[in-house]
């Protein structure tokens, strides 16, 4: 079975700040990791692959190669980096178009696994958008998956339970991190990963349509980014424990928090 896993390198925290002068994110000095849901997708692929092959793919700046090497060290067989200034500033629609072009160049696959969502953008959109671009069936929020007789059977998480969905292959699944505990790379794996070749493909290499990638082609545009205003110190209630409890309940009623629910 041939599996393609799409991953993203993200800052190792959600505690990021904005430079008030430029309106840009301050990324300097923040360590980067493989996005947690994507790491679970790698682990899922390793458990499913049997005698097959896993290709790990990302789109990003040159340093995203580190994330690919980590995936190779975990046991993936091949790694591809889509890297070109022409991809820069892509929104989820344009990102899906670029990745779809990369996957078409890879050609053969039975399964595409993505993480459900990345911890930086939190959109959960690229997976389904990629499935649509490749005209594949999708199962999102997958918490459990098995493959039998050429069919994929997956548990799709819902707000109050889950549903079991069956589909043929090829298909695209987005994986939630709760599915598994991702393995650590072995020393051997790390050695191998350093020697392995990471292919870098530019927009022209994958025949990406320039009207469908990058900032200008993206249908959405960011008007403004800002830090939500930090709360100032509020009111410290006074009195005996009983008085404070009474005071608090009154204030919550006033703010319509208690009656409402």
């Amino acid at each position: 079975m041939e599996i393609i896993v799409c991953i993203k390198q993200v800052p190792d925290t959600t505690d990021v700040k904005i430079d008030p002068k430029t309106g840009r994110l301050i990324r300097e000095g923040i360590p980067v990791i493989i996005n947690p849901d994507d790491k679970a997708a790698i682990e899922a692929a390793l458990q499913l692959k049997a005698n097959g092959k896993i290709t790990v793919l990302t789109m990003g700046p040159p340093q995203a190669e580190e994330a690919l090497r980590e995936a190779l060290a975990m046991g993936c067989d091949d790694a591809i980096l889509l890297c070109d200034f022409k991809f820069a500033g892509s929104d989820t629609w344009a990102t899906a178009n670029a990745i779809a072009a990369g996957i078409k160049k890879i050609g053969k696959y039975d399964l595409i696994l993505c993480g459900r969502q990345a911890i930086d953008g939190d959109t959960a959109q690229v997976g389904p958008q990629l499935a649509e671009s490749l005209n594949l069936p999708q199962i999102t929020y997958v918490q459990k998956v098995e493959i039998n007789g050429g069919k994929v059977k997956a548990e799709r998480e819902l707000e109050d339970g889950y549903e079991i969905i069956e589909t043929g292959m090829p298909a695209l699944l987005t994986i939630v991190k709760e599915m598994n505990e991702a393995r650590y790379p072995t020393l051997q794996g790390i050695d191998k990963a350093y020697e392995a070749e990471v292919k870098t493909w530019k927009a022209a290499d994958i025949g990406a349509d320039e009207n469908k990638i990058g900032l200008k082609a993206s249908p959405t545009m960011v008007k403004k980014v800002f830090s939500p205003s930090a709360k100032g110190q509020g009111l410290i209630l006074q009195g005996s424990i009983k008085e404070m409890a009474h005071d608090l309940v009154e204030r919550l009623k006033e703010r319509e928090i208690i009656q409402k629910f």
Binding site: V16, D122, P219, T220, V225, S227
Partner: peptide, 16 residues
Amino acid sequence: RPAFGGNIMAQIKCKT
């Protein structure tokens, strides 16, 4: 919308 787990807010418009 919030991003980075709510530590950043972004205002977004759609051209299409």
